[in-house]
Write a protein that binds this DNA or RNA. Structure first.
Lengths: 187, 187
DNA sequence: ATGTGCATGTAACTGGTTACATGATTCG
DNA sequence: CGAATCATGTAACCAGTTACATGCACAT
């Protein structure tokens, strides 16, 4: 199950914002998210880590533990954080898949609340446009198209509507929440 | 926007069951479906056609038209139909994406009503299992997980539910329809 | 004439996959 | 002692992409 276009590196960076991890750690973490974003193979994971290191977006340090095989712990660098930030703040392609969106959601959440909200708004606009397009298609397809194509259109509409409901809901809750961090100091 | 794993060839075969087409025709057709399945580039389309021809799944004949550039019309062969049939009748991977499913739906529809229904049932079972898994996750994630992961879970659940509703609806309508040909003999 | 659509292709690249290879540690 | 899990990697392959290249026909 592949991840989306050019995303594995970014996802790795996103995970490393939480804490330093080994390749194996990352695999385990991705596995727990696999229902959403898929699970990469070692054959892509380890090379990706090497590439990130070569590009200076992460650093590697060997962790030697007694009675356990040593392992490579990766840390994200400043440059890595910046790269991630740039990537997440540029809008997703208009045809971005569900998986790509969820991935961005998780990454955005690692960065900031405002990034998270931005992702939701962006997605909302895209899905709304998508639904409008589908509704157009439905109208002029009522006569000509074969039945399965109409079925597919309804399918797309049903999913778009469900997604919009969820997006509105999520945005409502997020915006209702107190700003969390930053403010608390007092207690 | 890529199509799913190893699917372009099959999708081409599926389109060719409707009528002979040129590479350009196929591109155009795929474009009109691009909101669902994505649109392949010529760089993959033409090589795919050549490969299909080499494997004997399609035949090519040059169509010379007056005052227009001649083009290559592709026809599906018996072997091609059989290959398509085999592919569609083997179950989709458990993590098959939405796009992959819609693609299979369209291809199944080209083959037979029963194949179409089979796809729907299959998908229904998979989504139901998926939903159950998500509900499990939601329960034990209520405490530990970070908020965005809970958001993602709800997102997945909302989509799964919407999809189940649509699937049931589609199945109802399909099964209510007259059988068209074949079965009517004795009831 | 110039751009748009029809029509076909190739070459270099990319981001993954599968299969293979190795080895330590832990648990039953 | 053997299996599962931890841990890291490489090589061959695959199905796509982008960018490039060509050329005809038709309309503005």
């Amino acid at each position: 199950m592949p991840l989306q276009r050019a995303s594995l590196r970014h996802f790795i960076l996103g995970l490393l914002t939480q804490r330093p991890m080994s390749g194996y750690d990352i695999k385990r973490r991705l596995k727990s998210l696999s229902w959403l974003v898929g699970e990469p193979s070692f054959g892509s994971l380890y090379p990706a880590l090497k590439a990130l290191e070569k590009d200076g977006l992460v650093t590697m340090e060997l962790e030697n533990r007694e009675n356990k095989p040593s392992r490579k712990l990766y840390n994200i660098t400043e440059a890595g954080i910046q790269t991630l930030d740039e990537w997440i703040s540029q809008p997703a392609g208009p045809n971005a898949s569900l998986k790509a969106f969820v991935m961005r959601l998780i990454l955005a959440d690692n960065l900031s609340r405002s990034a998270l909200i931005a992702q939701l708004y962006q997605r909302r606009a895209q899905i709304a446009a998508h639904r409008a397009a589908l509704e157009d298609d439905t109208r002029w397809a009522d006569d000509g198209a074969d039945s399965v194509q109409r079925m597919a259109l309804e399918y797309g509409l049903a999913l778009a509507n469900a997604e919009l409901v969820w997006l509105d809901d999520a945005l409502d809750r997020l915006l209702a929440q107190p700003q969390a961090v930053e403010v608390v100091q007092g207690d």
